[in-house]
Amino acid sequence: MKFVVNGAQHTTVAGPLTTLLYVLREELGLVGAKAGCQHGSCGACTVLIDGEPRRSCLTVVATLEGAEVTTVEALGDRSHLSDVQVAFNEHYAAQCGFCTPGMLLAATALIKRKGGPVERDEVVEALGGHYCRCTGYVRILDAVVAASRGERLGAMAPSALEIRGVAP
């Protein structure tokens, strides 16, 4: 079975009922998608399949021929964060960080679908299948709305950067 992951062609050796989550994590070492429940209920394993957010734990290899898969690893890296990533960081929308990759991908797809600013209730509906046990939902909503409007708070307080000795 052949499909594209983050722009690169992949031929899997896994059996037809193996999940995409397994292929990503164990074959490709792409561990951004998390095995939170492996029942489709928590959203932590969400990736984009042909641009649409899907549960990689419910998607088996047998249905992936020719598909294009995008994981959190392709959204942006440390030096080139996407708007959604910047917003999640600036709004402290990641607490323990376990649900964050799935949230980021669902939010990215929502903003692309809408092609412009999104309202809070649209975010609630689109991200409703994503579980944040740290209950940081308000900040997640803030971040997605801000990202859809292209709003940036700007750099974090420089004094704080000095204290921490890190650059975002």
């Binding site: 964060l81 990533q85 402290y92 964050t100």
Partner: peptide, 15 residues
């Protein structure tokens, strides 16, 4: 001050 989380960027990149 708004202090960046030391793990903030790692979280939002899935790293």
């Amino acid at each position: 001050a708004s202090i960046p989380r030391y793990d903030g960027v790692a979280h939002v990149t899935g790293a």
